[in-house]
């Protein structure tokens, strides 16, 4: 193979090297994206890292097929999302939590909520209850700092669709958690 490659000066070998360099450049940014997407689904660092590894490995194997490198991040995000969902389903880790958890049993100051385990657990439940399309947009939006254009680019869908999905997702999440902050104004 080396002899064959050598007989084609400046073509395949150089292309492969360029491709390898290009992939190397992607390692600066994409693993974090893949990891965070997986984390948004799995909520477990070790599992998320495994999924991110697998996503990057698949990216390596298929890098030459990606005609448009600008779409690579989107490809990675979607792959990581799909792999994370597969892992979640395969492992049966998506716990069916008791519906009693939905009852409003406590009220708390809003600013304390984010840090509270109760809020985090309820939020995780509410996220799990979201339709997949809404959940995906919500996770990517959180990663991208709620930049709808970026999310639209990653998912290759119109920006308006992202906005409407984000609205529905946030509304559903807020309504699910409203009981936790019932009549508790911010200080």
């Amino acid at each position: 193979m080396d002899a064959l490659a050598a007989s084609l000066p400046g073509t395949a070998v150089n292309d492969d090297a360029a491709l390898a360099r290009e992939f190397d450049a992607c390692l600066a940014d994409c693993p974090k994206l893949a990891y965070r997407v997986a984390l948004g689904v799995l909520r477990n660092g070790a599992d998320a890292e495994d999924v991110a590894q697998e996503a990057m490995l698949r990216a390596y194997r298929n890098f030459h097929r990606l005609r448009n490198r600008e779409r690579f991040r989107g490809w990675i995000a979607r792959t990581a999302w799909r792999l994370a969902l597969d892992r979640l389903r395969a492992a049966g880790r998506r716990e069916k939590r008791e519906s009693a958890a939905a009852e409003c049993s406590s009220e708390a100051k809003v600013e304390d909520l984010v840090a509270s385990r109760e809020f985090q657990r309820r939020l995780a439940d509410a996220m799990d209850a979201l339709p997949e399309k809404l959940r995906q947009v919500m996770v990517l939006a959180a990663i991208e700092g709620y930049n709808t254009r970026e999310v639209a680019t990653l998912l290759e869908i119109p920006e308006g669709t992202v906005r409407s999905r984000m609205f529905l997702a946030r509304k559903q999440l807020a309504e699910s958690l409203r009981c936790l902050v019932k009549n508790t104004p911010i200080g």
Partner: peptide, 27 residues
Amino acid sequence: ETIRALVVAVDRGVEAMVAGEPSAQFV
């Protein structure tokens, strides 16, 4: 004020959910 704060809390909660870095050994 409650609802406005709740929406902020939801956004922050989801951000916290996806915040994190792969380990140093990842690459």
